[in-house]
Design a protein around this nucleic acid. Sequence first.
DNA 1: GTCTATAGCGTGATAGAC
DNA 2: GTCTATCACGCTATAGAC
Lengths: 243, 243
Amino acid sequence: MAAREPNRSAEQLETRHRILREAATLFADKGYAATTTREIAAAVGVQQPSLFHHFGSKQEILDSLLRVSIEVPAATLKALVRQEGSPAERLMAHLFLDARHILSCPYNLLGLHADDVLLGDFGRWRAKLDELHRGIRRLVRSAVQEGEFVAVEPEFAQWTLTGGTLAVIRIHGGAPRPRPDRTAWQASRLLTRMYLARPETLDACQRGASEIVDRIRAEATPEDSPADKPKAKEKVKEKEVAP
Amino acid sequence: MAAREPNRSAEQLETRHRILREAATLFADKGYAATTTREIAAAVGVQQPSLFHHFGSKQEILDSLLRVSIEVPAATLKALVRQEGSPAERLMAHLFLDARHILSCPYNLLGLHADDVLLGDFGRWRAKLDELHRGIRRLVRSAVQEGEFVAVEPEFAQWTLTGGTLAVIRIHGGAPRPRPDRTAWQASRLLTRMYLARPETLDACQRGASEIVDRIRAEATPEDSPADKPKAKEKVKEKEVAP
DNA sequence: GTCTATAGCGTGATAGAC
DNA sequence: GTCTATCACGCTATAGAC
């Protein structure tokens, strides 16, 4: 990287962002292994070797996307377990935060949840994701023990709930949604309802979850975004990919 | 990843079936594109070119597995729409049949649902799967209209329900389950419960679904009714597809 | 920062002996 | 039916001009 350049040109950031964006879409469509660097370059509108000016390797592109996909949810879940509130409320808060993160993300994160990615040479992210899943299973187990949830295998519940998050990604598809909060609450309500022993307590559960979300937002640092996280105020233009 | 040891317990099977079995496991672990024919051969315990005596290409291996994974559920859903019963009951019957098919299948079908497979050069199977998803969305839409289900986007419901089927595959993992019917009913009960407007009607819904399943089974085996054909549910044995 | 040209390698698949 | 040997191709990544 040009160390003596005082200002990283907006052009470079733009290209880097577009690479991530197009790569994420292609990974979602065809999978990571099946996507070639030539296809990514073609979607961005540059020649294939030009990618390697911005990223050291194809895996590095995936790595940057995985950071967005996994690091944020893992951090929020970690914040969640310290919060007060019943297990079901905390689980619902997690489901909401996860869904809203997806709906606010400018990249299509679908391909990053495929097994060829998570079981490949990405032990670092795999470990983080396992931690996430363990946290969810722990919350499910507590909710079942306290009678909030019906009897269910924690592992099955975890896979259906994370599968529900995938459903949010599928419907989202990388396109901006009008009201992310509303959609995220809808999804988390349905997923929580699946296991709630007394479904009529869903509204109360959501109120508890909402309070937890507010508390986390209050204690969270304003800038929680490393270099790869694109600005919330995005100037993402509609892509004009040469097919 | 380390090369897998040849599966000695499977050495008695036909080589062709062992190839399918080991390939399915590898596809589930690493994805289709990331799995090499050399890895499949190593898992089976033969040299790589020997695979091509049994299958014309790597894609042909995948094709044989996709037939097992998609053709059976598509056929049962087609039989379902002709049955009497409320939309929720028919949907629950589908979820049960799908789960039981998975739990009775000797192959790990997880990798076949990955997007790199279904969006690749397999338009034939992709079309069949789309048909399946459309059928599910149609049942969801009817159930919502009739007040059996809570208000929900059919597309979201379809992805969560098919995601729930994936959860069954994940827990199954290709290993035999003691009581497939019991596990399949548990899963379909939870998934149906997610959208049932009045969860207290779940038992009634299951009774209706069970009757539909029985009717389908009756019409699926209309001609062969020798004396030794038992009707016990647990006796249902999925015959391996040997094309 | 992007380009052209190409290296280096692993892949799916084939040929022919046994 | 399985083996050894090998091909032809497409892939990621590098080198160096501009």
